[in-house]
Design a binder for these strands. Structure first.
Lengths: 237, 237
DNA sequence: GAATTAAGCTTGTTATAACAAGCTGAAAGT
DNA sequence: ACTTTCAGCTTGTTATAACAAGCTTAATTC
């Protein structure tokens, strides 16, 4: 036997998904239907379906079944964040903010090195796209800004609030990576343990003040991605 | 019972990893040791270990055991790809290229829209970081460039080769997203089905010629990430 | 000393079994 | 008509069992 049964079955079901037999939102055969169709035990059927879930092709809901996942993602432009927020609205994505934590704290050493000083405002928000938790945003903001704009920052996107008040973001340094959901983020984003996440760790600078915001946005990898345009000027970068 | 046994056990083992009891490279308890320690069946022990693997905390090898994974990632700068290649060398990362496919093909319609014309060179390479398959690179190159620099493109990084021959990349449009390995990429990158991947879908433009390269780099999410610096000039972008 | 084999350990696959927990729609009750 | 209950369906957890396949080291053979 070249391949395990569970793999053969999951590739068969995968082919049906890719060929359009099952469309996004459609239910795929239940465990018992897979057992009957392929004449295997339940544990083999479950593993085949789990393989599909693992590849992001289906999402499984207890009591309901497994459904073909949409592959559509919201695109957020790092090059023009404010325009990107308007673009998301144009894509039919309504962003709402749920505040988890907002307080003045002593920064960890690595953050102090970036923002300077010892104290900053720590904000933790969940961003919901069309009511679905999709992003956990954890950032430190300079204390004076964090204090003055507290009310607005608790319920809107950080860059929008700052820009609205004339604090213009002149530069952003970002690192984009993939991680997997631990228990905490799996609960916050309502995804399974280990679900792929795309993380944007960033520091934003204004012209007059230097570094003003530092932190990370942790988004569902299945719902979100980043675009960026890199241009080189006349001189070598 | 608030949480399943498998979850309780995996959180206990996770804490040991995070607290440093087990360091990267160390072996965690085997399935039978977990069975004995926590007095559970083998399937529960396996599931606990699988939860850790799912979170990227351990990697499991048949016949050997489960080992704490390193969390170190290679950082590749989108803002200065050539400098980034030198930086990788400085980080002790030797990049070698394994050519999978290199041929003149008729482009799919969407690629034609970007590169123009009907024919391009399709290159598929595996990039190995220190001998370990870490990235699958699939790109279309303008046909005249693909033909003239075939020998070099087969065994080096695309941008390096072009730059070396005076084809200067003036702009790059990129989309960064997370996906999960299907069978093909899991085989190419030697990772499990569903392993998180970071994908960079890009189009590179030169000043004189417009779009010259289009395609995607699919890298292991556990080994690779992107950095980018976004600056706004005097005018609003 | 080098090569081969075997024992012991490790993970991988598959089966049967039973109970738990959530979802949905129809039937029963108010 | 609205609310509650129940049956049937679905996935989730855990156990026992057995065999397969890979890894490593020690013992045996050449």
């Amino acid at each position: 036997m070249l391949h395990p049964l569970h793999f053969v079955i999951s590739e068969r079901l995968r082919d049906r998904i890719l060929s359009g037999t099952y469309q996004p939102g459609d239910q795929i055969p239940s465990e018992h239907q897979v057992m009957a169709e392929f004449e295997v035990s339940r544990i083999t059927a479950r593993r085949a379906i789990a393989n599909l879930a693992q590849q992001g092709l289906v999402t499984v809901q207890r009591g309901k079944g497994a459904f073909v996942a949409t592959q559509q993602k919201v695109v957020y432009s790092l090059s023009s964040p404010l325009l990107s927020e308007a673009e998301m609205a144009r894509q039919g994505v309504e962003v709402t903010v749920e505040n988890l934590q907002y307080e003045s704290v002593t920064m960890p050493a690595e953050v102090q090195k970036i923002l300077g000083g010892a104290i900053a405002y720590l904000q933790k928000k969940i961003l919901l796209f069309n009511g679905i938790p999709s992003c956990v945003d954890v950032t430190y903001v300079q204390p004076d800004l964090g204090k003055v704009y507290a009310r607005e920052l608790r319920r809107a996107l950080t860059f929008s609030v700052l820009e609205k008040h004339g604090i213009s973001i002149q530069k952003v340094d970002a690192v984009i990576e993939c991680t997997q959901a631990d228990y905490e983020t799996s609960e916050q984003l309502e995804v399974p343990l280990g679900h792929p996440l795309i993380v944007n760790r960033h520091t934003a600078y204004s012209q007059e003040r230097g570094a003003i915001v530092h932190g990370e946005s942790i988004s569902r990898g299945d719902r979100f991605c980043y675009s960026v345009r890199i241009e080189r000027g006349g001189s070598r970068e």
